[in-house]
Design a protein around this nucleic acid. Structure first.
Lengths: 103, 103
DNA sequence: GCAAAAAGTCAGAAAAATATGACTACTAAA
DNA sequence: TTTAGTAGTCATATTTTTCTGACTTTTTGC
């Protein structure tokens, strides 16, 4: 999913909006990890076993595009990039909590 | 998605559990419609424009399998089958509400 | 300048989800 | 017993998503 090609009814179904924001194999996991601490690419790649560069890269970009994650360049020894939750992203935390309680 | 083939980490990421229950192009919409009233197959097919028999059929079956919908055979003139939310399904309604408020 | 580490991109392959259209099964009424 | 309506299934095709492996870029330390 680079952009949305398939038309679905996010207009008529609000949950589909959120579900879409987090749709894809790795996004929910990325999101959850980002709740705890800022994420770095290679670290993420190692943490999420079974994933791959390409997919993570795309997922991160898309999460950024919809305003759930933000990217920060850290000028350290070998140069780091950190992804962390935006304010909008933080708004979703209680929803996740509620889901956890339910399931 | 007939059965789950791809291993993801629903164990470590609870939201992924719910997201998975409702993953797929039509499931969120089906769920939302089921909140209001029991669903019938052909009616659903007409209501969800752009969808198709095959996909709806699979989605309904899967929603049934995970215990969100239940099926009832109504012996009427031409024989009806109704899908409605289970108790478990109803538990999700507040989550959807919260999502609506958020987005 | 050269190596090494982080953070990717890119083209192509493989796998999974979704769509299409023909066909089936059941019931009831004519 | 034929017809009509509902609820599907099935094989196949198309589309979308995900994966693989090779390659690129940037920065710092030697």
């Amino acid at each position: 999913m680079t952009t949305k090609k398939t038309a679905t009814n996010s207009e008529t179904c609000p949950a589909q909006g959120l579900l879409k924001l987090l749709s894809g194999k790795w996004k929910p996991e990325i999101f959850r990890l980002a709740v705890n601490t800022p994420l770095r690419f290679n670290s993420l790649l190692r943490q999420i076993q079974g994933s791959n560069k390409q997919s993570l890269s795309i997922a991160l970009r898309e999460l950024e595009e919809v305003g759930l994650l933000e990217k920060a360049v850290i000028k350290q020894k070998p140069l780091h990039i950190e992804y962390s939750l935006t304010e909008r992203g933080q708004l979703l935390i209680p929803v996740f909590k509620q889901i956890e309680e339910l399931l």
